[in-house]
Nucleic acid binder design. Structure first.
Lengths: 112, 112
DNA sequence: CGCTATATATCGTCTTCTGATATATATGGA
DNA sequence: TCCATATATATCAGAAGACGATATATAGCG
């Protein structure tokens, strides 16, 4: 799963959001690192719906503009949890190797 | 950075390895989850060298078969550390949201 | 009146992963 | 002896996915 797809799932896990809202939320969540392009967003959203990980929520007219909301499904939530565990395992693996190279904080080092 | 590229970097950070050795190490590191195809491996390796994240090490004949070793560069090591921090931040972000949905262990829950 | 933000959607291109294929030697079992 | 499997390299076509560009349209601000 790409970082883009992952962050869209996190954004939707928070609460149902419309496309543009997802773009903004992803930017917030990644502290500005990931600026989701609309071309990417709609591709991701379509795939999530096709895979049963997200579904259409309501539609709203907000200040004269249409907002199409999406919400996370149970399967999507489970997939997100699974992937997060996978990422955590990778971080664990990498930090062990990096620690041996002196490129990762030793235990207690941050408190020193 | 894809999980494949990430795990190749981790495999090389450990010690210099040849192509086939990387495939095996990645499988170990991911506990069997990621089975790197050779088509993927050589593409990743070529890109790492082109980006200055890995470089050719020695060549050896081992039991009549050629082994072409690759080693991680300083830039590669830094990139790996950066990406690992990024993954850790994503895990942190996702686990907060999942905890609110009751899909992530609460603090202390694992010890209960 | 024009710029920026909000909001949707599509399309071609590029990068990257996958699966298939090719070649070759060593090892172990039938 | 023969065949399958493991080791080891490399290439190529196809598919998936991200990106940048583009299009359309309204609201708000200067």
């Amino acid at each position: 799963m790409s970082e883009q797809t992952f962050l869209v799932l996190v954004a939707l896990a928070d609460e149902p959001r419309h496309g543009y809202g997802v773009v903004q939320r992803v930017q917030e969540l990644s502290e500005g690192r990931v600026r989701l392009r609309v071309g990417t967003l709609y591709g991701v959203l379509d795939r999530l719906v096709a895979d049963g990980w997200a579904e259409h929520d309501r539609e709203e007219i907000h200040q004269g503009r249409l907002r199409r909301y999406y919400r996370l499904t149970g399967a999507g939530s489970t997939a997100l949890a699974d992937h997060t565990r996978r990422l955590a395992a990778n971080v664990d693996t990498a930090s062990k190797v990096l620690r041996a190279r002196g490129q990762w904080p030793q235990v207690g080092e941050l408190r020193a």
